[in-house]
Amino acid sequence: MSTALESKVRIQREDFSVTDEIEFMKKSSRNIGGITTFLGTGRETNKGENISELNFEHYPQMAEKKLGEIREKAIKDFGLIDMSIIHRIGHIEIGDNIVLIIACGEHRQETFKACEWAIAELKRTTPIWKRETTSKGEVWVQATP
């Protein structure tokens, strides 16, 4: 388990603790009044196919750069106090954590909006690719909504 909380934008193989990550973010400011989290996890089926495992690959440096840009834009555009984005790569079992976004604000409204925007933007702009292993073999997943 990784407890390396030194960066608010991370791509890592290790699992993360949602609780530890939230506690870390709460230290950003004593003015945080609302925190919204999005946690993406490995699901068992996709388009009717049973998935036995997932693998994520990324483009080092570009992926981190894009996540950093998403974080900065979210803080600026939604008036957040802080945001963290963590995405795992490598082998992921069904049910495992994949991605975590934590949006912190003075009030709840901006954190809900920012969190939803950030995961959509991550999927749109960040060079990370998912490979699913099914009964038919390994399949690189194309972009999903």
Binding site: G40, F56, H87, I98, V99, K123, T126, W129
Partner: peptide, 11 residues
């Protein structure tokens, strides 16, 4: 330079 297929990060 990198050639990038459609992204599929997140979930």
């Amino acid at each position: 330079i990198a050639l990038l297929p459609p992204f599929s990060g997140g979930i």
